[in-house]
Amino acid sequence: MVLLTERDSPPPAARLRLVRPMNFALTVPALLLLVVFFILPVLSLLLRSVMEPEPGLGNYAALLGSTTYLKIFLNTFVVSALVTVVTLAIGFPVAWALAIMPSRLSSIVFAILLLSMWTNLLTRTYAWMVLLQRTGVINKTLMGLGLISEPLPLVNNLTGVTIGMTYIMLPFIILPLYGVIRKIDPAILQAAALCGATRWQALTRVLIPLAAPGMVSGALMVFVMSLGYFVTPALLGGTANMMLAELIAQFVQSLVNWGMGGAAALVLLVVTLTLYAIQLRLFGTARMEGR
């Protein structure tokens, strides 16, 4: 016979008996919704990629064999990578400052972050379309300062997409990084200083390594979200640098080519889920939001 040891409160099993065992049945409504309106439709879309117009891998051959489509894949990766690097470069110092600045100051920055995050996505994108246009504030200001003589093409190109996407993704990297840096014990950095580390050494050998998990996890999240983004690239990008999500929508809406649409969706899904799996493996949990 085995006897229990080291147990103060009753075992976990005990806590459940009192209010009838809540069970699987309660999750059924949510599960039904998900299966019928999420899993099955997505699977059926993916199925169409190998069934239409005729069974086989023809759609994938067409998708991966054409330079037009490969350029779109490449562009999607370039934009996402660019946005990730820029948000990380800006996000780390901001998160660091937020973690240590007086709360009166940081609460203002937080309010701005939340306002920007909660403002309607189209509103934000529209604002950038207006600001970046040929006669927009930015070009006007630069010309007024005499820095340029001709308006810069800031919109309908890579610059426009990068600025717009960076704007949207910044909060998603600042907030988790802030959490990570907040949890670092300041005494560790005092110890580093007492050990003789210069500020620069303390930064590169102590603070950044300690914040690294948050940086990697945040960067992965931004990268994955960017890959599947639709609205902002569609409005701020040009026809020359279309992204994957737009391509999928175009296959279905304009070309009514479900086979190709399904194939492109599968490519996006595979990449997204692979990166998500890496994120889960590395950090256990992940919170992402795609639009």
Binding site: P41, A265, R287, G290
Partner: peptide, 12 residues
């Protein structure tokens, strides 16, 4: 549904 690109769900 939070991590899946919305465009895929929309098309499906």
């Amino acid at each position: 549904p939070m991590i899946l690109p919305v465009v895929v769900l929309a098309v499906a």
